[in-house]
Computed example of a mutant assay.
Amino acid sequence: MSSSILITGGTAGLGFHCTVALARQYPNHHITIVSRSDPNDAAGTINRITGQNNVRYQRLDLASLSQVRLFVKKWAEDNNSPITHLLFNAGLQFPNEVSYTEDGYEKTFAINHLGHALLFSLLTPHLAQTARIVVTASGTHDPEQKTGMPDAEYTSAEQLARPTGESLNLPGRQRYTTSKLANILWTYALERRLADLRNRGGTDYKNWTIAAFDPGMVPGTGLARDAGGLMKFVWTYVLPRVLPLLRLLVMPNIHSAEESGQSLAWVAGDAEVAKKSGLYYEGTEEIKSSKESYSKEKQEDLWEWTVRNLAGGLEEKALFELKGLN
């Protein structure tokens, strides 16, 4: 295989269907799907569907920063081919009380943002000269979308990572919508830095582009795996059967996992779309994200806090700041 594609959360839901689409589009790429587990052998199933053998599974728990570092260490040791497509699709929400990772960070923020931010930075030496990065966000981050979810509330990255005072009482679903806002804030902060790389020319030239993606509401995915019994049952087994009714009564931006997966594959893999950077897509439509997401102050607060708290030493800090990539 001459190139690699890496997809987090590619073992189920829209990530699974996205992987099927990309495997068909890039039969000569080595595709790695990563998740906490793969109980249904998603990689084997995708290979059988496509009649190919270019998809494999590797375990990674994004809640553990040490596991992220070990994953990248093994990636380097295995001499994988350069990554041309990097999709940060994994995400979880925890509807009940605040829970923390082994590193002491609130789990929603840790999995949906911190794990991916660290993974990206450590993988930068392994990206191809031309690479596409796509971050799965959510329309729930935008109050104007009126999705029925609590409005995102970004005060600071520190409060999201280590909540104190009143922020300890925020509902879990609000932590989720705010983490999705953080995904977009990070996307835009990174785009400014990627634009600088693209403009340098010479030996420093990197043609890396990034986009944020809203899959819409996708009932049946593993997003509600930590919800209560009834909610989880309805989300997993009832709502996927009444999508036309939901689109009529709730909002049009509701899709099956296959539909959203194909849209994600398009944002990542379409040659013309991949030339565009720093944009936000609802499915295959380029739209504006929330007003708050364009706050450079909040973008930089998130970026700088992330570097300050995750970068372990000068070498990692240089990677976070996209330096020394030749």
Rank of each mutant, 00 (worst) to 15 (best):
C18D: 02
E166P: 13
S277C: 08
W186Q: 12
Y205T: 01
A212W: 07
L230T: 14
I49H: 06
A271H: 00
V68K: 06
L322A: 08
N112Y: 03
I254Q: 04
D270N: 13
E292V: 13
G51M: 09
I111E: 08
T136N: 02
E158H: 13
E292K: 12
Q159F: 10
K323E: 15
E292I: 12
S121D: 12
Q159V: 10
G313L: 10
P125H: 01
L118A: 11
E286G: 02
L123P: 10
S66A: 15
L279G: 00
P215Q: 09
L197T: 04
W208N: 02
L230F: 14
R193Y: 08
G278A: 11
L245K: 07
L197R: 13
T147L: 06
L87F: 08
A157Q: 11
Q174P: 05
E259P: 02
V238K: 07
T306N: 06
R24F: 01
Y294V: 10
L118E: 12
S2I: 12
Y176S: 04
Q93N: 11
T306E: 06
A182C: 15
F94E: 07
V72M: 10
S99N: 12
C18S: 13
K73D: 15
P27E: 13
L22P: 04
N54V: 08
N112Q: 08
H113Y: 08
R36L: 04
E158F: 07
P95Y: 02
E285V: 15
S256G: 13
Y26K: 13
L22A: 05
W303Q: 05
A224S: 13
G202N: 13
W266E: 00
M1K: 10
G91S: 06
S3R: 14
S295N: 14
G312Y: 09
R193Q: 14
T203V: 10
L60T: 05
S121K: 07
E321V: 05
F94V: 11
Y281R: 03
A212H: 07
E166L: 14
D78M: 13
W186E: 06
Q262R: 15
P163V: 11
V55S: 05
V234K: 07
M217H: 07
S263K: 12
I31Q: 08
Q129W: 01
N89G: 00
R132P: 02
L248I: 00
T178E: 05
P125W: 01
P27V: 13
F233Y: 15
R24V: 01
S37F: 01
N79I: 06
N199Y: 02
K232N: 14
N309Y: 11
A43W: 02
T147C: 07
G9Q: 06
N309T: 12
K323R: 15
K296P: 00
P240N: 08
S138Y: 02
E102R: 11
A137W: 04
D214I: 00
L190E: 07
A274C: 00
L65R: 12
S277G: 14
I83D: 04
P39I: 00
K206Q: 11
P163M: 10
G10H: 05
G91V: 03
I46W: 07
I210E: 02
R173C: 00
L322M: 13
G202L: 04
G222T: 07
A152P: 03
